[in-house]
Amino acid sequence: MGVMRIGHVNLRVMDMDAALRHYRDVLGLLVQGSDDSGAFYLKGWDEWDKYSVMLSPSDRAGMNHVAYKVEYDSDLDLFKDRLAEHGVDALLEPASHLPFCGRSLRFSLPSGHEMYLYADKERVGKAVGDQNPDPWPDGLKGAGAHWLDHVALQCPFDPEKGVNTVADNCRLLREALGFYLSEQVLVGPDADIQAVAFLFRTSTPHDIAFLPAPTCGIHHASFFLDGWSDVLKAADVMAKNRVKIDVTPTRHGITRGETIYFFDPSGNRNETFAGLGYLAQPDMPPITWTEENLWRGIFYHTGEAHDSFTSVYT
């Protein structure tokens, strides 16, 4: 039982045609359909459920919700009770409330983000099928991203006013939802304020990250690539398509991931993330980064602050 992985992210976009050109032609996701509300559903070629990205037309950018997939339908009842024990009122929604999904459990994180858990989603299969498959499909566009890997959320943080929703979220996910802490940043004069938390349920270094911010928002949605040469090619694809790149290919200290940060046409930050980092396991001692080294954790090569990384989000 339990949470398996990130299921999908629902992003708001202001120009659907431009968004589709980005997610389909630059990231290389496969369009699976649309609905009467004008929303579009996309997946990576290596994913088997119907969608991992839902794009909703809006007059603003940002994230509507993020959803994680649990193993069994009965997990939803169990997690509803566990969340209630932690003071979080979760609502069971009927099938199809989340498009193409079975019933779902809806709640707000302490940071204000809306999160869902669900057990069933329409299955369409990988692009290479499941009978004697080739290692990759023909006709991939752009970066050819494999799957939605994780999201990083901007969480209200003002320790002097007693607000630290990075730590609140981290505690809730560990205690109520069975997530494990892989890495954290501790700051402040006594190095006891948790300013960054990376958590996992798969065997990769993170399935969700919480970052400190003045207001609730999404920092990025990240898509998986195999390795460094794929990261370089993805950057070439972005340059060809005049995508606004925030941070050119580099390496994170935290997670050891190989990365590019860039923006979709509505200004939502994306990441292409390569390398599985290390084997994350429930008994792995969590890694701690200290305040004076936190920028080496974020951008390992320069180790220097990058203003837009903290101030620019949707």
Binding site: M14, A61, F263, S266, G267, N268, V312, Y313
Partner: peptide
């Protein structure tokens, strides 16, 4: 300079 997409 931020997102260059009218979002941030």
């Amino acid at each position: 300079s931020g997102c260059h997409g009218g979002g941030c």
